[in-house]
């Protein structure tokens, strides 16, 4: 092990010892960070669940495909074959007679229908795409419109577009909140580190007198900030887990009342890891900003 690694290890163990030496203040700082972070993180999870819900809703966007009157049997078969591919979740065929029957029955238009010399309605497919995102919808719509034997297609996407833009707005909001709370996190960390530096005044001054470099003095405090940030991330995860456990029952009950089998989804492992990386980084950053300023003050005062 070279001396650089040895210094890192020394600084990390010193940082851990200092945290363990003040369990109450360590816990309180982690809790402050956790509560602050649980707001943007919770919103993020809520949005994720909402987009999932949007995917499950019966009011999913649909594409209506109207066949030409003179479409050949081969063309119809080819289209039916195309609609069995993976990007189509479900496709329902509505024959023209069936459509006319439904029209006259449902809308009370049987007089009108009876007066018609011919059935004016075409054969049609109602297609539900698997991917409800705007790009995928338009792509599938355009492809179906180009199929031979297809007279007209209609994309019923206004509802989906509105929902998507609402979710996009929500996501922007989450990132803005996350940025704000990152600053708060760095400030909390910086403040905790400042107290630590002031409490270690004697050690710092003596170390300087016997040949400690700036980096040697600074390093344990940077690790302290990073570990404190990680603890804050763990606290946020704990807050979210508790909130999730409390909300799960009522939400699933509500979903059942609406006849939906929708369930609350916990965050995925990469998302949790990203949260920890994020809090560790900002804990470190807060420490880095604070430690330089405080050290200068300590040394000027000593």
């Amino acid at each position: 092990m070279n001396s650089w690694l040895r210094h890192q290890k020394h600084a990390l163990t010193a940082a851990l010892r200092r945290l363990a030496g003040q369990p109450v203040s360590t816990l309180l700082t982690a809790l402050a960070m956790g509560v602050a972070l649980s707001l943007p993180a919770g919103l993020y999870l809520m949005l994720g669940n909402l987009s999932r819900l949007a995917g499950d809703l019966p009011a999913q966007p649909e594409i209506s495909v109207y066949l030409a009157d003179d479409a050949s049997a081969a063309q119809k078969a080819a289209l039916a074959e195309r609609l069995k591919q993976a990007d189509v979740e479900r496709a329902r065929f509505i024959a023209r007679d069936e459509a006319l029957a439904a029209l006259s029955a449902a809308q009370g238009l049987d007089d009108v229908a009876a007066d018609l010399p011919d059935n004016p309605l075409p054969d049609a497919w109602v297609v539900r795409p698997r991917d409800a995102s705007r790009g995928a919808l338009i792509h599938l719509h355009d492809e179906l419109a180009r199929q031979p034997g297809v007279a007209e297609t209609q994309l019923d996407s206004a509802w989906a577009e509105r929902l998507q833009s609402l979710l996009a707005l929500g996501r922007t909001g989450v990132w803005l909140l996350a940025a704000l709370f990152a600053v708060a996190l760095a400030a909390i960390s910086g403040n905790a580190i400042r107290a630590q530096v002031l409490a270690r005044r004697d050690e710092i001054l003596v170390s300087r007198l016997i040949g400690a470099t700036d980096r040697y003095v600074r390093r344990p405090f940077l690790y302290l900030g990073a570990v404190q940030g990680l603890l804050g991330g763990l606290a946020a995860a704990a807050v979210l887990a508790i909130a999730g456990a409390a909300l799960r029952g009522p939400i699933e009950h509500l979903a059942t009342l609406y006849g939906s089998a929708w369930r609350l989804h916990p965050p995925a492992a990469p998302e949790i890891l990203a949260l920890f990386a994020f809090t560790t980084l900002f804990g470190w950053l807060g420490a880095w900003i604070s430690v330089g300023r405080t050290l200068r003050r300590v040394e000027a005062g000593g």
């Binding site: 040895r6 210094h7 170390s207």
Partner: peptide, 11 residues
Amino acid sequence: VLPLDIAGVLR
């Protein structure tokens, strides 16, 4: 031991 820690000497 402090000065040796600072100089990065093996523990």
